[in-house]
Each structure stands twice: as C-alpha cells, then as structure tokens.
Design a protein around this nucleic acid. Structure first.
Length: 585
RNA sequence: GCCCCCGUAGCUCAGUGGACAGAGCAGGAGCCUUCUAAGCUCUUGGUCGGAGGUUCGAAUCCUUCCGGGGGCGCCA
C-alpha cells in the first residue's frame, strides 16, 4: 500500500472520530519541505460547515491521529494546516516493504479491463518522419504504464492504408509503368509476386503525385476514381495495393524496432473495410443523405459550438477516414475493448468528437465504452514553426535517430569517456544515450503544449535530460557490481540517519501516486519528472554517504538495499518511458 | 465569424484550489588522492499576458480583453 494512502486512512479515521467527513483526511506531500514531510488541509475545508475555527478542528484531529510510533511531528500551522512528519523507524519499515513489492506499492488495476491504445498511425508509402515521433513515444509510454498497472492492453498502430493517397499512388504507378498488368482490366492473373516498386520509389512517387493532384483537378479526379475502384475491389488495384502495403510495412517495422516501439496489432483502415457496408446498413435510421453524400448529424442541443455532421460516404460512394474510424470502433467493440485511447495530434480533436458522437448515437459503441482522444501539440523547430530540415524538407525518423546517436558518440569522444570500451559497445552506448535524449526530451513535455525540438539542446547532455538519468542509473549499477565483487550483500532497509538518505526514501515512496496520476491524466511527463527527482535524490545521497567504505555492517547492508531498490525503481520508470539503460557508460 | 489549445524567470519548460510559484539551461561562486565530476553545493533572476469575479484561500475555477498556434462537410 502506498505511504500516502495509509496516512490518508489514519487521518480519515481521525476526522471521522471528530464527527467529520472521511474525505477531509487526504494527506499530500508537503508544499513546505522546510516545515514538514506531509500535510493535511482538511481542517480548513471543514471549518465552514462545522462552524468552528479551523485550528480547533486541526487540534482535535491531531489528538485523534497521534501515534508516537508513526509520527515524529504533528502540528497546526498557519490558518489550520496540519504538518506531518514521520519517525525514521516508520519510514525505514515502509521503504523496506516497498523493496519487496514488484509494483513498489502501486495499486493493481483490473486485468479484465481491456484498454486499447491507438498510436503511431504511419501511412503507406510515406517514410516515418518526426511528425510521427510524439504519437509513437507517448503512445508507447502509455501502453507500458497501463500494462504495468495491471490492465490488459492492446496497442494498435492504425496504419493509414485506405484513403485517397492510395488512389494517388496507383495513378502515379500507372504513369511510370503503364505496361504493368495491374492496370489491365482484362488481365486474369496471377499477378507478379515481386513488388514493382521499392520503398525508395514509393517515397519519391508520393510527393510527386501529391503535388500534381493538388495543381491539376483532372489528376485529382483520376486519383479519386482509382481510390474508389480500389475500395470497391478492382483486382489489379488490390494486388498493386498489397505490394505497396508490404513494402511500407517492412520499412516501418524496422523504424519502430529501431525506436524500441512495439505493437500488438498492425491493423489499418483497410482491416475494417468489410465491416463498413454492414455498419452503414445498421445506421440507416440515424444517417441522412445530403448532396449525394451520406452523413450523420452529431450536433447536440447543449452544444455551444457548431459541430458539423460526420460524412459517412462521399457523393461517389467512396469512404472517408471518418467512415473507417467508425468501422474501427465497431471492430474494437467486437474485440471487447472497454476503453480506447487515441494518441493523435491535437488538430484532429474535432474529427474525433464527431466520430465518437456518431459511434454512441448509432449504437456502435455502448455508453459505457470509453472513447477518448489523447491529444498532443506539434513538435516545432527552434523558429517556433513545425519542424523542418535546414533544406526545408521533412526530417525522416531514421535520419533523426542517426543524428542523436552521432551527437552522443561525438560527446563520448569529446569527453574522452568510455575510451577503454570496444567500438561495438561504444556504438551501443551512443545508440541508447541518443534515444534516451530524444525520448526524454519529448516525454518530459506536457502533452498538450507544442514544444520546441532544438537539436543543440537535445544533444547537450547536462541537466534534466535522458543522459543524466542514464548516467545516474549506470553509477548505481556500478556500485552494486563493486559491492558484489567485495562479497557485500544488500540487507533489509533500516531507519535513515542522515537527511539525503531520508529524502531519498521519501522520494521513492511517491511512486504509487505518480503512476496513478500518469494513468489518470494519460500524461507520461509525470513519470519523466519523477524519474528525474529520484535520480537527483540518489545523486545527493551518493555524494554524502560513501556506501562501499561504510564501517557499520548493518548500515552498509541497508544502504545497499536502498541502492538496489533505487535501481529497480529507476529501471522501471525508464522502462515505462521506453528508455533502455546500458550496463556502463 | 464560431470553437479548441497555449501564454509562468533571459531561454526551454513543470506545477493536483492551499503556506514563500518550481526545475533545467544560460550568468556568478565553490567541490575530484575515496563507490563513474555526463556529478554535487551555494547563488542571481518572477507584477504566473491584462482586468474583473467566485472562494477563508486562485498560476489553477468563472467572465472579459490582448497575444500566439490550430480547427471548422466530400484530404488524412
């Protein structure tokens, strides 16, 4: 059980004993660490209802809660705050118990609750670029946290493989290689097994055709028709599409693997194509026709803004991404998903509002199913505008990863670090340090804000960064290795005697609340912030308490136990952020 | 025009209705014969965009204005 919840229970009892609401007992970490470790503000909130001065109430609560085994100090401060500090022996016992718990006191959530996390969302034929980074990193961290907390998690990449860009690619392919059998309606197959285009071809074809259809309405019309024919099942187009899909899939799987991000499901828009027609059939009562298109009105009376209807089919009968999104919800219902989180750019919030409303209104999703958009801001360059390379192009994800790895390697050289390790290990360290810099830089930001991706700042490895955390973790590993070499064995954790030790223990005790908060707000930056706090608290302890030369054997064993616990927690936190720790650096 | 997000130290950002608003970077001063100095200690720096309001108490909730970004039916 978490330290805060057990303290809160004690105070809830005390309020109840004074004839007041249990909810007043909420204990939080103190805002004034110079005065106390924890605080309770219930007396202030209770004063009005009880018609008594808050300080009087606080005094009663203190009298009821007092326990010299637990509290070294309980006192009223200011207008009626209750300041709370623990005895060292109670704190030591609590931390010793944490060390035995794989969840470090965090609550175990219901494994029967199925949470689907939709993120990544790359498109066929488009190289992954920095724009996919935030969705991938935030989504990956969330799937790790939800899983850690005990939920059954399904992560779904939601491949963009069924929209207008597919028709565009088809007409571009025809322009470049008109003799391929895919375009011949009379061809009876079988179609070639070898893909007619490489990944490099596709990545060059897409921007070319995108520009052409934008400039030329006749070309756009051809692309639209090709899209429709693809969706309606024209065999040659389907076969060609499958090649595009395979080539893109292989490349993107490599990109995600490099990033350390994995998915349970590689579903895409096309996955649910066969569900669309029956779904639209079921929606007849709520859908209406408008200018040849099928729409569903999702405006509600309580709306303060204009919510336009969701377009279900285009006037030519083609499907839009709202259509496939709705069919995807239908599919997720069939998969018995209780909660679906969409980690997608904030600019799509209106779209998701429309889709979710349509799903509820049409009865595709029951009211009890949670459909939630988890939006994030854009990643900008140092100029405050969406990130571009120096040449003005979009930076590819694998180039970005190469960039941070090279920066990490350069830093190793410059600081003459890790010089005694072989080339392979140095490269591995640089890879991990670079990814840690990249991921921590992203995840430590509040989800909702736009943030500035500044390569210079990312590759500066001082301060509140991924590399600082790795360095701290590596030093911890090093102590434990040296201790093992000297046959020193970690023992049970006893009462702290010095302040950095005490503060480290208090910091470690915050873990359960941080996990809860991360889950509730779907925001990994809380984890990032806490990981930094723990490592900093450890570094202070490390400076003051020289573990390997400690003469008191019991104290030394306890310190080693504390070091071991810290490493376990930091490893867990970094893992939840998707960051790997090297053995040494 | 309507709606959403953001505005906090020179810069980049945290911040759960509570006490004196916090970090990192940058600036200044120190600490390596001992467990990795990518570290640690101290320090300078703020009318929380402005104005009203609710509250015992507001960076946080409400109203309004200003500034920045974004969205608003046949792209995704």
């Amino acid at each position: 059980m978490s330290l805060l919840s057990s303290l809160t229970d004690r105070f809830a009892d005390a309020y109840q004993a004074s004839g007041l609401e249990r909810a007043l007992g909420a204990v939080t970490v103190s805002d004034r660490p110079d005065l106390a470790q924890f605080q309770n503000n219930g007396a202030l909130a209770a004063a009005r209802g009880a018609g008594r001065p808050p300080r009087d109430i606080a005094a009663d609560v203190i009298a009821a809660a007092g326990d010299p085994e637990v509290f070294s100090d309980l006192s009223v401060a200011g207008p009626g705050f209750i300041n709370i500090s623990l005895t060292d022996s109670y704190l030591g016992r609590h931390v010793d118990r944490l060390a035995a718990d794989s969840r470090f006191g965090a609550v175990a959530h219901d494994p029967d609750r199925r949470v689907l996390i939709d993120f990544g969302g790359p498109n066929v034929a488009k190289a992954m670029h920095v724009g996919h980074l935030r969705s991938s990193l935030i989504g990956d961290s969330l799937q790790r946290v939800f899983r850690f907390a005990g939920y059954t998690v399904l992560s779904d990449i939601h491949f963009g493989d069924w929209g207008t860009q597919m028709g565009q690619l088809i007409i571009e392919a025809q322009l470049r290689k008109p003799d391929l059998p895919y375009f011949d309606p009379g061809f009876t197959g079988p179609y070639p097994e070898e893909p007619p285009f490489t990944l490099e071809d596709l990545q060059e074809m897409y921007p070319a055709v995108a520009a052409r259809t934008k400039a030329d309405p006749a070309e756009a019309e051809r692309a639209r028709e090709a899209t429709l024919e693809l969706q309606q099942g024209r065999p040659g187009y389907r076969a060609l599409w499958q090649h595009f899909w395979n080539v893109s899939h292989d490349s993107q799987q490599r990109d995600f693997a490099q990033l350390g991000v994995g998915f349970d499901l590689w579903h895409g828009e096309s996955t649910v194509h066969d569900r669309v027609a029956p779904m639209l059939e079921r929606m007849q009562d709520v859908a209406t026709e408008d200018a040849g298109a099928l729409i569903i009105d999702v405006a509600e009376e309580a709306d303060t803004k204009e919510v336009p209807p969701l377009l279900l089919t285009k006037s030519d009968g083609g499907y839009l991404y709202g259509t496939t999104d709705l069919a995807t919800i239908d599919n997720r219902v069939a998969m018995k998903v209780d909660e679906a989180l969409y980690v997608v750019d904030a600019r799509q919030s209106l779209h998701f509002e429309q889709v979710f409303r349509a799903a509820y209104k049409a009865g595709i999703a029951s009211q009890s199913m949670i459909l939630e958009h988890v939006p994030f801001g854009t990643m900008n360059g140092p100029d405050g505008k969406p990130f571009k390379t120096r040449e003005g192009g979009v930076l590819r994800l694998d180039d970005l990863i190469g960039l941070v790895r090279d920066a990490a390697l350069a830093r190793l050289d410059e600081a003459e670090l890790a010089t005694e390790y072989d080339e392979e290990e140095r490269r591995d360290i640089a890879e991990k340090v670079g990814l840690a810099a990249l991921k921590y830089g992203d995840l430590s930001n509040n989800r909702a804000s736009n943030y500035v991706f500044d390569l210079d700042r990312f590759t500066a490895f001082e301060g509140k960064t991924g590399p600082y955390l790795l360095y701290g973790a590596v030093r911890i590993k090093s102590i434990l290795r040296k201790a093992a070499d000297a046959d020193l064995v970690p023992g049970s954790i006893i009462a702290p005697t010095v302040d950095p030790e005490r503060r480290l223990m208090l910091e470690l005790s915050r873990f359960p609340e941080v996990i809860e908060r991360t889950i509730e707000s779907r925001a990994p930056n809380h984890l990032a912030e806490f990981a930094y706090d723990v490592v900093t608290a450890f570094n202070r302890f490390y400076e003051e308490c020289h573990i390997l030369s400690e003469r008191d054997a019991e104290r030394q064993a306890s310190w080693l136990g504390l070091v071991e616990l810290t490493l376990a927690m930091v490893s867990t936190l970094l893992d939840l952020l998707g960051i790997e720790i090297p053995e040494r650096m």
